[in-house]
Design a protein around this nucleic acid. Structure first.
Length: 257
DNA sequence: ATGTCATATCCGATATGA
């Protein structure tokens, strides 16, 4: 089975791109981020017509995440992360699909740093790690998929110097990400492409796509049972070059049944 | 390169978040 993650940067503006990607690549499960729309305006009918059941956690204007399943209805398990009741950002949704636990994650960007947004990012990462530990304790096959807004290693960015002051690359961000992989979660893209040089995001500005000035921030983290079934992990890079593309490309893993 | 894009607000601009 194939499980994909795609930061679509606005489901309203991106719906034709999303539907053609679903039709052309037929992922079994698709985790979406940055819906930028409310629960009421989520295009559930169009997605159902494409053959996908869905759960979603929307928000007006920004954030928003969803889990799509081909020919199945995901069963919601959790909405949002514990630990900060006043946090109303729609950034985390967890569901069960055919025996697989799936989380869709839109981790805070954290810029500018230092500052309150960066502090929020680090607190959010701590809360995510706590939730990941709870899932771990259930010993179920699980995948934590999404836009982590973290460049894990220097080999995951086209220019270390250009991004040195960015929240995505700060030692605190990296250390919080490595705490997750240190807990035993497998970064699937990194496992399949250990040499690096694989990007999932290219900025709209300054001709970043044309210069291949990108980096890797969309990650698929696998629990041990899921990691044992890992066949391959790839980026649907060509979708970044289409008309009216998102600034992220879809990423996916293939797991043995 | 202060470079692009999507969304919201009150209808053509500016603000926000990325």
């Amino acid at each position: 089975m194939r499980i994909a993650s795609f930061n679509i940067n606005g489901i309203k503006a991106r719906l034709p791109r999303l539907l053609e990607w679903l039709e052309e690549t037929r992922p079994d499960i698709a985790c979406l981020q940055e819906l930028k729309t409310s629960d009421e305006t989520f295009p559930a009918q169009e997605i159902e017509a494409a053959g996908y059941g869905a759960v979603w956690h929307g928000q007006k204007g920004f954030n928003g995440v969803a889990i799509l399943a081909r020919g199945a209805q995901p069963q919601e398990v959790a909405r949002g992360l514990d630990g900060e009741p006043e946090d109303e950002h729609s950034r985390y949704l967890e569901a069960e699909v055919n025996g697989l636990r799936v989380a869709t994650i839109y981790l805070p960007n954290g810029n500018p740093c230092p500052g309150p947004k960066f502090d929020y990012k680090l607190r959010w990462m701590k809360r995510l790690r706590a939730r990941a530990a709870e899932i771990w304790a259930e010993e179920v096959p699980a995948i934590l998929a999404g836009d982590y807004n973290v460049i894990p290693y220097d080999r995951d960015v086209w220019s270390v110097g250009a991004m040195a002051d960015d929240a995505l690359m700060q030692p605190e961000s990296r250390s919080a990400y490595r705490a997750l992989t240190g807990d035993g979660w497998t970064d699937a893209l990194a496992a399949i492409h250990p040499a690096g040089g694989v990007w999932t995001y290219w900025d709209y500005q300054a001709g970043a796509w044309q210069r291949d000035a990108g980096f890797r921030i969309d990650h698929l983290l696998l629990s041990p049972i899921a990691a044992d079934r890992l066949v391959t992990a790839q980026v649907d890079k060509a979708y970044r070059g289409r008309e009216k593309a998102s600034d992220h490309a879809p990423v996916w893993v293939e797991l043995r049944d």
